[in-house]
Design a protein around this nucleic acid. Structure first.
Lengths: 114, 114
DNA sequence: TTAATACTGAACCTAATGGTTCAGTGTTTA
DNA sequence: TAAACACTGAACCATTAGGTTCAGTATTAA
């Protein structure tokens, strides 16, 4: 279950690697928003915001729907489950490494007695 | 506590957005490794691997140390804590949104009775 | 029907990525 | 001391990212 298509994680981690896009996620968490309201909130052109939303959409983090002339953006159903799963699964690696390192340090300190 | 320097998350999420670099993390979880052994494992030039390691190092996910002619890479002490924290904190946003959406769907279905 | 709104697409710009090769430098080994 | 090894740095290349402007199109409001 830990194993998932690398492609998906590539897209979603890349999407999260930008402060504006993380801000968009936070904003959409408080309610759906149009492209233009997001553009205004983040002081950016419509075109620029549309690109950010597209990045989030390709990553599955946001879905959009156009009604009339307004495109409404909302958080995607996929959520952050896959990303949370990868990070949690690999956090253990770091901790295990440091447990091992601590043992080594203990050994060194016991050996030196300074 | 949830709020942290955007810069750090920018770097670490960007570092995680590449399958090779995620692979390096997994690999280092099984033990420290030199640049050249990583380069061989991932079928890449030394120079290419060094760049990946630098990206991970700038993100604080990996630390390196040069002894003699060998640079040894290991997992960084920072771990994935900040990234896990952001993702977990914002996972709730998605879920809350979908709880709200479910309510709306319930209302629509109760209204239509088809 | 005209004007304003909301988006879209193409084109452009600069900087960063992800890789390479090639020419070093310093370290070990024979 | 000479050869092999492990890395380093500069230069290059193609692609992508993150933004812009400008010129549309479609929708809504007056």
């Amino acid at each position: 279950m830990v194993q998932c298509l690398p492609h998906t994680l590539d897209l979603s981690f890349a999407a999260l690697a930008d402060a504006t896009r993380r801000g968009i996620i936070v904003r959409l968490g408080r309610g759906d928003a149009s492209i233009s309201s997001l553009a205004e909130a983040f002081q950016m052109t419509l075109t620029g915001m549309k690109k950010h939303v597209q990045v989030l959409e390709r990553a599955g983090l946001v879905v959009t729907q156009k009604v009339g002339r307004v495109r409404t953006c909302r958080l995607g159903a996929r959520g952050l489950a896959a990303e949370a799963e990868w990070i949690e699964a690999h956090r253990a690696l770091f901790e295990a490494r440091f447990a091992a390192l601590d043992d080594i340090i203990d050994e060194i300190e016991e050996g030196s007695h300074d």
